[in-house]
Nucleic acid binder design. Structure first.
Lengths: 212, 212
DNA sequence: TCTACTATTGATCAATCGATCAATAAGTTG
DNA sequence: CAACTTATTGATCGATTGATCAATAGTAGA
């Protein structure tokens, strides 16, 4: 005979409560994926009535879209911060591949994959996905172009190369999502192997990226 | 006042009806994705009561898993048949990249992406996904190894290269899913650009794959 | 202290989903 | 033609989902 333990949620500032809901949605997404971000799951996580979440958000499609956006934007900011101190484009690129393919961010990968699927039925989300992809592309493009300018890389179409890089990274991560426990896919070696492909794309000598 | 037009479905052989259901599920998946494969959508497509579909399938998770399997296995068979007549591994690889990246199979790409996401909540599907990935990997591995044997390719880890190839293809296709109307991603050029990366991975001279 | 505002809730709806089961009717067999 | 098998159905259940709305109860300002 256990009744719901919640009596009544403490009254908070709209700004506070809104942030709380946003954070809860992000946590649910990171832990269980975008499909688990529901009116009730978000409400339960902050011990509040489902109607309150609905009160603060225009609709669930919007909350899911914004949740995707903040998670992915945060990821990009983290990676950018990680690469910033590195002196050369070559080192930044090597570090980028390393950190994105080490399996540490599987929770974010799930969100990407789910977003590609969900985007077909959630236009707000689809738009956010395109926006975040553009941001990531711009980031990669910056690295590639600075490398070309420094004479480290060689390509006649940096923008296209940047898209290819992004596609490779996402594809390999999506695969790892399903086969993470598989030794034959050689998780530890993914970065190095992709490095060889990238060396090919950028006209770098073999090992220049994966080596020291 | 339009009542349902269906009076009573013609009685059919279990084998016939079962095949009909299987086909309907496949069609729904190709047209609207795996998430649209529901008891009712499949039943409606062949003008039959939802309970009949439930009668023929153990449960929807199983039907979705087997639907994924047949769609993807068919795709592999088609591609294999397309490459079979080509004389050299280099030509087969070039053709493979070409046909898989020309945007013709977006419907199958949707199914792949949805399967990666759904697999986390549908163990039967997850197993099928791994199986089909293994089949694709084996297929690519065959091409790579024959190329190495013929002296056209050069690598010390063909299995790993095959996984990388698969990951790249899937990632680029997933991206195209969201940005199909985008000219900046240069759909037509995807194959050629990936070709350069692959040339790098396999130690082929630039242009040997993308050229004539 | 009293009043106005509004954050919060419970109740409730309509959709959609997978699943079960007794009843019906179409064939098949003897 | 009668008896039997079984393909097919309608009805229905329980879960989930997003969403709405009148009622309630903190809180700030007059």
């Amino acid at each position: 005979m256990s009744r719901p333990v919640r009596k009544k949620a403490a009254r908070k500032t709209p700004a506070e409560r809104s942030a709380e809901i946003t954070d809860a949605a992000r946590d649910v997404a990171l832990e269980q994926g975008l499909y688990a971000v529901t009116l009730r799951s978000v409400a339960a996580r902050i011990d509040v009535a489902p109607a309150l979440v609905a009160h603060y958000e225009p609709n669930m499609d919007a909350l899911i879209a914004s949740t995707f956006g903040t998670v992915v934007a945060t990821e990009l900011a983290e990676v950018a911060a990680l690469l910033a101190p590195l002196p050369t484009p070559r080192e930044r690129l090597a570090q980028l591949l390393d950190t994105l393919l080490d399996g540490t961010r599987a929770d974010v990968t799930v969100i990407w994959v789910e977003a590609w699927a969900m985007g077909r039925r959630n236009e707000a989300l689809a738009q956010r996905v395109r926006d975040e992809m553009d941001d990531w592309h711009a980031f990669l493009l910056g690295i590639v172009e600075s490398g070309v300018a420094a004479g480290e890389f060689e390509t006649d179409d940096a923008a296209s190369v940047a898209w290819q890089l992004l596609g490779m990274i996402d594809g390999l991560n999506a695969h790892a999502l399903v086969r993470w426990a598989d030794s034959s896919s050689d998780l530890g070696d993914r970065g190095a192997r992709l490095g060889q492909a990238v060396e090919g794309m950028l006209g770098i000598a073999r090992g220049a990226l994966t080596g020291p």
